[in-house]
């Protein structure tokens, strides 16, 4: 068990970390970052798995199943969407050079 005050310390430090990580981000990355942080809270999947794993009876199992289903969608969907967005960030040096060749 995490001691109450230790938990509070973790909470405070994590909050500052989140704030600092975003603090100086250019506007260009706002949407990808929102999507990326959306993926990160997909970690709820591990909690949902534990809850379903310890569920007894139809009611608990049903809700637990729904929880795992939703959480896995959050994690996987969040990852795919973020990756697709970030795939597109290139500097003009790399890919565009080939693309800029005029079509005959």
């Amino acid at each position: 068990m995490i001691d109450g005050f230790i938990a509070l310390y973790i909470f405070m430090l994590a909050a500052f970390t989140g704030y600092e990580v975003i603090a100086r981000v250019p506007v260009i990355l706002h949407t990808p970052l929102m999507s990326g942080s959306n993926f990160v809270h997909g970690i709820v999947l591990v909690g949902a798995m534990v809850v379903l794993g310890q569920a007894d009876g139809v009611l608990e199992q049903t809700i637990g199943f729904i929880g795992v289903f939703l959480a896995a969608g959050n994690a996987v969907g969040g990852y795919v969407v973020t990756e697709r967005m970030l795939e597109m960030f290139r500097t003009s040096g790399t890919k565009t050079k080939n693309k800029a060749e005029p079509a005959p």
Binding site: I2, G18, L33, S37, N38
Partner: peptide, 21 residues
Amino acid sequence: VLNNAAMIIAGTVVGAAGTLL
């Protein structure tokens, strides 16, 4: 509630980052 540090940290980071965003 679940005593899961990964959830506490990831969730809080997103909560703070999302608020700022």
